[in-house]
Design a protein around this nucleic acid. Sequence first.
DNA 1: TACCTTTACGGGCACGTGCCCGTAAATTGC
DNA 2: GCAATTTACGGGCACGTGCCCGTAAAGGTA
Lengths: 352, 352
Amino acid sequence: MKKENTSQGVKEIARRANVSTATVDRVLHNRTGVSEKTKKRINEIIKELDYQPNLLASRLASKKIISIAIVIPSVSEETDFWEAPLRGVKRAEAEIKQYGVSTQVFFFDLNDKDSFSGKIAEVLRGDFQGVLISPSYIEETTKFAAECELRKIPFVFLDSNIPELHSLSYIGPHLFKSGYVGAKLLTYRLERDKKILIINISKEIDNFNYQKIEEGFRSYFQDRGQSGEIVRIDIRETDYQSVARHLTYVFHLNKDIGAAFVTNSRVHTVASFLKNSHRTHVSLIGFDFISENVAYLENNVIDFLICHRPEDQGYRGIMALYQTLVVNAQVSKLSYMPIDIVTKENYEFYHN
Amino acid sequence: MKKENTSQGVKEIARRANVSTATVDRVLHNRTGVSEKTKKRINEIIKELDYQPNLLASRLASKKIISIAIVIPSVSEETDFWEAPLRGVKRAEAEIKQYGVSTQVFFFDLNDKDSFSGKIAEVLRGDFQGVLISPSYIEETTKFAAECELRKIPFVFLDSNIPELHSLSYIGPHLFKSGYVGAKLLTYRLERDKKILIINISKEIDNFNYQKIEEGFRSYFQDRGQSGEIVRIDIRETDYQSVARHLTYVFHLNKDIGAAFVTNSRVHTVASFLKNSHRTHVSLIGFDFISENVAYLENNVIDFLICHRPEDQGYRGIMALYQTLVVNAQVSKLSYMPIDIVTKENYEFYHN
DNA sequence: TACCTTTACGGGCACGTGCCCGTAAATTGC
DNA sequence: GCAATTTACGGGCACGTGCCCGTAAAGGTA
């Protein structure tokens, strides 16, 4: 089978407008050097034909390379969570490399604000046409966003959002609803008079993500007028010893805790504690498909993991920038990921 | 930033081998007209350079159009399930249309074997280079697969599988495990002495999919030595009246049914019955994110829906054929979809 | 009027690959 | 040994777009 042989694209427009393809090209890229009236004539024909440029030919002919910077936490000993978004980024890159898109990844230390500042400064020194960033520190990100806006560099937020800033798009979970789902699962078979424990393990004090999750979690009970007692604890050190010490204390004060909800991926530390202290009858829920968590899922210590397709997040983040920078198409400002429920029974097919 | 200026691709190979690009081209497409020794020389250089053809240029220069046939059930009054795979197909098509790929969809009536035969005959009369098919009828599909193999037309199975046939790939759920997950969810808070009801509503007698699901469901109980009584019922008519009649009878015989598991997307019919007969205390689980089901999820009549990302299935199906026919890359023979758990709390973010 | 600058366009090559057509060289037939 | 055929290869255009360069025409200045 053969393609249609009608002359297509710029040539056809040029023919109808009685000009050369170069002139049409000038109009398409709104460069100077075209009189108003021919410009108008050409634009009308473009509209009439509903002209869509041939990306193949365009990218083939163009020598421009589009560079995208990715700013994400490095994979630490504590968590390999960011492996997944990175995979997604690489997958997207492989797909669109042929269109002249290249990426460069900047890893920062999640526990070190200065490393974050350093990396975004480095990005600004480089010559990037788009940025995909995990906005871990609000203040620094705000400055960075202002500079990007000045330079007209589109940026996409990954995994957590700062709605006030004018990002091209946010790609990540709806945190409030994630907490809500956690509450539903955690209490699905909880006995009436048992207490619920919310555990927040994090070095960062000002992290607003956990607040949103906790709000969602609590609102589930408000919505149904249930008012079982909810205990909460903040733990500022992430090592096992510290966590165990705090938890021992809490469980000592509250003998009748039936379920525990961890607001992030450090649920495996809690799982470890529950196992060591023979408290595996306590229902346990947390976030993210990381290897330590999956191990405790397998062991029946963790009941459910809530996940947000981190690989897909990375992929979609790059693709959103690609749509804007190369295809010149619109992308939606908010792209909430599904709230996936992972259990011992279905985790082997989960696409993280 | 500019692209590297080193001469690339076929030209570079030709230069090194002291031949013209035309000769290299002949080797690349193993056409005739090249002596053995030059062929060998060129092949060595190709290997040495790890030559990857530029898809952009290739597809731009080629006038060939690749046609893919899609054979799926039509959206019926009973279910709009197949809307989702169709969306995925369209999404894939939009992405790769520029590479000269076109698709044609053939809808058959899921309750009419002859319409299935008719459509596959039509596909074979057409000039297609690849087929994406939902193999609803085994015997007819077997014949079709044999003919495709003869003509060297790759075909991909969607949503259900016939492992004996040499499909390029199967894209769909792991049915056994899906049933297993259903059992876990259904009994997560089931009281000890309550009975479980398995409901199979389908006109097709020989459908092996449901058997696999039921096996998985039952094996969950075997794995944990639980032997609560399991009742099962087959209903061969899909209309509400028939289903209600059968269910009335079953519930009359078994007063203590605490949970019901429907092996396919017709769970909404059962939900309707449970609601009308004031039996919403019975836990209910079924399959697929179709609008009727979601409505009962919202109503708390259905507890969970198990889903397998039908849109993604359609997308991946087309992409598997694209990888084979255009990119000439390998695709994995089995591509199990995640077993997603959809509840009232998270359905609004589900990407079906 | 003569000269210079600016504007408004056209010509044409390049991107990397596919493929048609032409032809020198090698092979075959008698 | 000569013509006919086959083999093995090169030249070069086409795909649709980007963009450099050249130039006629229009406008400006003395």
